[in-house]
Nucleic acid binder design. Structure first.
Length: 269
DNA sequence: ATGGTAGCACGGCTA
């Protein structure tokens, strides 16, 4: 089973590009981020006409996530638990059955967190975007602790807005004080990894020069000035089934591309 | 310090 994550940056503007990639890559399951659409306005045709089931968790204008799958999706839940007042659409879960095992999938769009606002003590300012990011990550860790009790394969994938290490950026110095690379961000990411998750990409490929995002501005892609912030994390049941994980870099050179490219993993299930 | 680009939706926010 080939599973993938793609920050589509606006599904209405990206239907053609998504269709081209689906035809080429033939994934079994995809989580999308930044659909920037309500559920009602989502252009479902491009997905459904290719034989995918579709579950959306949308929002007007910003954010929004979705799961598409050739196999039926079961036990779909929407929203990250832990804060009833949080109205941002950034989390969706579903279970998909393969020939041999079922897989629990979480599709996530982790908050960006910029601008970083700190108080006089150097702590994230309450109500600010960086505090929201760290609060959201704490809630994700709590949900992950529940999911780790499931004795079945688990994949958490999406736009994490986290640069895990310096080698995951062309110019790490440029990101030193950015919410994507600040130490508290990377510590919160590592805490989740340390609960027993495998970074599928790093299980298959080491070294610098592998990115999933290039800014639209200043010709970042042409200069290969990128960052690796879209990740597929697997629990041990899923990591034991990992065959390969790759980034579809060439998608960024296509017509009217998203600023992110897809990342996918092949699992033996 | 600014401006550089893009999406949504039509003004300004988000990234």
């Amino acid at each position: 089973m080939k599973i993938a994550s793609f920050n589509i940056n606006g599904i209405k503007a990206r239907s053609a590009a998504l269709g081209r990639w689906l035809d080429e890559a033939q994934p079994d399951l995809v989580v999308l981020q930044e659909i920037k659409s309500t559920d009602e306005a989502f252009p479902r045709e491009v997905i459904e006409e290719r034989g995918y089931n579709l579950e959306t968790h949308g929002q007007k204008g910003f954010n929004g996530v979705a799961i598409l799958s050739k196999h039926p999706l079961e036990d779909v839940t929407r929203g990250l638990p832990g804060d009833e007042s949080d109205t941002q659409a950034r989390w969706i879960e579903a279970t998909v059955g393969g020939p041999t095992h079922a897989l629990r999938v979480c599709g996530l769009y982790l908050p960006n967190g910029n601008p970083v606002e700190l108080d006089s003590e150097g702590q994230p300012k309450g109500g600010g975007k960086y505090a929201y990011k760290l609060d959201w990550m704490a809630r994700m860790e709590a949900r992950l602790r529940e999911l780790m009790a499931l004795e079945m394969p688990l994949a958490l994938m999406g736009d994490y807005n986290i640069i895990p290490q310096a080698e995951d950026a062309t110019r790490p110095d440029a990101w030193r004080d950015d919410a994507l690379f600040l130490l508290p961000s990377r510590e919160a990411f590592r805490r989740m990894i340390n609960l027993g998750l495998t970074d599928a990409f790093r299980a298959c490929t080491s070294g610098p020069g592998h990115y999933t995002f290039w800014d639209y501005q200043a010709g970042a892609f042409e200069r290969n000035d990128g960052i690796r912030i879209d990740h597929i994390l697997l629990n041990a049941y899923a990591a034991d089934l990992l065959i390969d994980c790759r980034i579809d870099t060439e998608v960024r050179a296509g017509e009217k591309p998203s600023d992110h490219v897809p990342i996918w993993a092949e699992l033996a299930l």
